[in-house]
Design a protein around this nucleic acid. Structure first.
Lengths: 232, 232
DNA sequence: GTCTATACACAGATAGAC
DNA sequence: GTCTATCTGTGTATAGAC
C-alpha cells in the first residue's frame, strides 16, 4: 500500500472532521444550521493551523483569528465558548480520529509482520493526510488542562501498546527477535513523529511520504526480524 | 562510556552556561558584577524552564518570572532588554553548547563504528545533562524571529551531517551497509530527540539513559552494520 | 447568525526612589 | 543593583443592534 492508495481507501477530509465536531459539540455550539456550522468550523480550524504553525496557540489572539477567518469576534464566540475550549475541542477530535484509524488498520491483518507494516504505514500516511492536526496536537498539548494532557499521554501509550503487542505476538510466532519490545515501540513512534514534526527538512530534501515510510520500515524490520526470516 | 563517566568527563553545569551567557552578553546586561549576575541569571533560567515546561514561553508573563525568581520586575529588566531578547539569548546559548560538544566527541575517535557510538551517546547524554535546555530549544523555536528559527534549522542540519558523514565514511571502510545515509541520520536524530521530548514516558517506564542509549545504538547498528561485521 | 462597540483584566516595559 | 508605582497597549469576552 502506498500513500495514494491509502488516501483513496481512507477517503476522509478536513470537512468530515468539522462535521463530526459539529455533531459531537452541539451542546456548546450556538449555531443550529449544520451546513453553516460545518463551513465555518472548517474555516476556523484552517485559520488556527495557519496562525499557530509559526506562533503557537497562546500567541494567537482572537483578533488574529477574526482577521484570518473574516468572521467577527462576536461570530467566533458563537462557535465555541472560549479560546481554551476551542483548543480542547480540537485536541479531543484529533485523538478520536487517530484512535479509530489505527485500530481499523491493525485489525485488517493477521500475520504479525504484515500487521506491523500496515500499522506503521497507516500512522505515517494518516499524519500526512491530516498533517496540521498532528502537528497541532503535539505542539499544543502543553496548553491543555492536566486532564486534557493526561488524555494525550493515554493515546501515546495506547498506540505504543498496539505496536508492542504486534512485536510480542511476532516473537511468539518466531518472526521477530526477542528484545525490549516496549522500547522498540517507542523508537518506532519517534521515527513516525519525525515526519510531521520536521516536515521542513523532508520538503527540502525532497523525500516523499512513501520513501520515508519505506525507510522507517527497513530500519524496523532490519532490527526486529528473526535471523531465519530475513529473506521473506 | 556510560552516563556517569560522561558527566565526570564533561563536567559542565548550568552555572557554567550562566557564566558564558554573562560574558557573551555584557553589551546588553546592565549588571556589572560577575558574581551577582551569574547567580541571578541561573535563577532566571531555572525559573523560565520551570514555568514554560507546562505553559510555554508565550504564556509565561514577566510577573510569573518575577514571582518565581523572587526578583522584582525592574530587577529582571536589568538582566535582559526584553522578553523576546531573553528567549533569543537562551536559544543562542543552547545552540553554541550543542555544536561545541558534538564536534568534540566526534573528533575523539577514528574508527567509524566507534565514532558513531561516541556521537550518538554523547548527544543523548548531553540532552540528559541539560534536559531543560534541550526541551526548551525544541518547543520554543517557533517563537523566535525567522532569522532565529533559521539558526535552529541550521544546527539540526549540522548534527545530521555529522552523523551522515560517519555513515558514508563507514560505508567506504566496508563497516556499514550502503543506503540512504541522510535518511538514516534523520532517524537517529528522531530517536535521540525522543529522550528529552517525552521524558515522562521513560520516567514512568523506569528506563535509564544508559538503557535508552544502548537500545538506540542496537537499532542503529542492527540496521547499518555490513553483514560481515555483525559479530564485531 | 453576524455585526459593532465596549468592558475590564493583564500584558510588557519604564521611571525614579532607595 | 533592586525596589515600587505606574504608563500604555492588547488580550479575552460580552451586550445588544441588525
Amino acid at each position: 500500500m502506498d500513500y495514494n492508495q491509502f488516501k483513496k481507501r481512507y477517503a476522509a477530509s478536513g470537512r468530515d472532521i468539522s462535521r463530526t465536531v459539529f455533531l459531537k459539540n452541539q451542546g456548546v455550539i450556538r449555531i443550529k444550521k449544520e451546513k453553516t456550522a460545518v463551513i465555518n468550523l472548517d474555516k476556523i480550524f484552517a485559520a488556527v493551523f495557519s496562525i499557530t504553525y509559526t506562533k503557537g496557540y497562546q500567541a494567537m489572539s482572537m483578533r488574529d483569528l477574526s482577521l484570518k477567518t473574516g468572521m467577527s469576534l462576536g461570530a467566533l464566540y458563537a462557535y465555541f465558548p472560549g479560546k481554551d475550549e476551542l483548543l480542547a475541542i480540537m485536541q479531543t477530535q484529533a485523538q478520536a480520529m487517530v484512535r479509530g484509524t489505527l485500530e481499523e488498520f491493525s485489525n485488517a491483518q493477521d500475520n504479525p509482520l504484515e500487521k506491523l507494516r500496515a500499522v506503521v504505514k497507516a500512522h505515517i500516511f494518516l499524519s500526512e493526510l491530516f498533517r496540521p492536526w498532528f502537528y497541532f496536537t503535539f505542539m499544543e498539548a502543553r496548553n491543555l488542562t492536566s486532564k486534557g494532557f493526561d488524555a494525550v499521554k493515554s493515546i501515546e501509550e495506547h498506540t505504543q501498546k498496539i505496536l508492542s503487542d504486534i512485536l510480542v505476538a511476532g516473537e511468539k510466532a518466531c518472526v521477530f527477535k526477542p528484545g525490549n519490545h516496549d522500547l522498540t515501540a517507542c523508537m518506532i513512534k519517534a521515527m513516525q513523529q519525525e515526519w510531521y514534526l520536521k516536515r521542513w527538512k523532508y520538503t527540502k530534501q525532497k523525500i516523499s511520504v512513501d520513501q520515508f515510510a519505506a525507510h522507517v520500515l527497513e530500519m524496523v524490520e532490519g532490527f526486529c526480524l528473526a535471523p531465519s526470516c530475513e529473506n521473506i
